[in-house]
């Protein structure tokens, strides 16, 4: 589980750092059947950019890709960050504009996991 989380955090951090922010906060909250990652930065993004992030992170489930290629998430320095590698593994994703920049909420979990039962507030 530790490695899995590191992969996800690594890819999300790479994505944020590609935009050269002066602030980045990544918060992790684990529960029995799943986990919540919140990523905040101070990079202002257009609505179009936010929509692209939403689409990538809410990609349709692709078990043939997520299990095999998903392992590459957060593992390399070369090339662009690839949110779809994370998106195939996400149970639910939300992307908001904040006063300073962007907040991305990601929920991961097994079949039984339901983000609506999560004990921390969404906003």
């Amino acid at each position: 589980m530790k490695e899995y989380i590191l992969h996800l955090i690594g890819e999300m951090a790479k994505f944020v750092l590609d935009s050269n922010p002066s602030r980045m906060v990544i918060s992790l909250h684990q529960e029995e059947d799943g986990l919540h990652l919140a990523i905040l930065d101070n990079v202002p993004r257009s609505e179009e950019e936010l929509e692209k992030i939403r689409v990538a992170l809410n990609a349709p489930k692709r078990p043939e890709l997520s299990e095999y290629y998903g392992i590459m998430a957060g593992q390399d320095l070369l090339g662009n960050s690839r949110l779809n590698l994370v998106g195939w593994q996400v149970k639910h994703a939300e992307v908001f504009r904040t006063q300073e920049g962007t907040k991305i909420d990601l929920w991961f979990g097994g079949e039984r996991f339901d983000s609506s039962f999560f004990s921390i507030p969404k906003k």
Binding site: Y68, I71, D76
Partner: peptide, 15 residues
Amino acid sequence: LPSIAISMLHLHQGY
């Protein structure tokens, strides 16, 4: 094969 294939991805990083 699955274990080898997954490990090999790290070497070339999908290129």
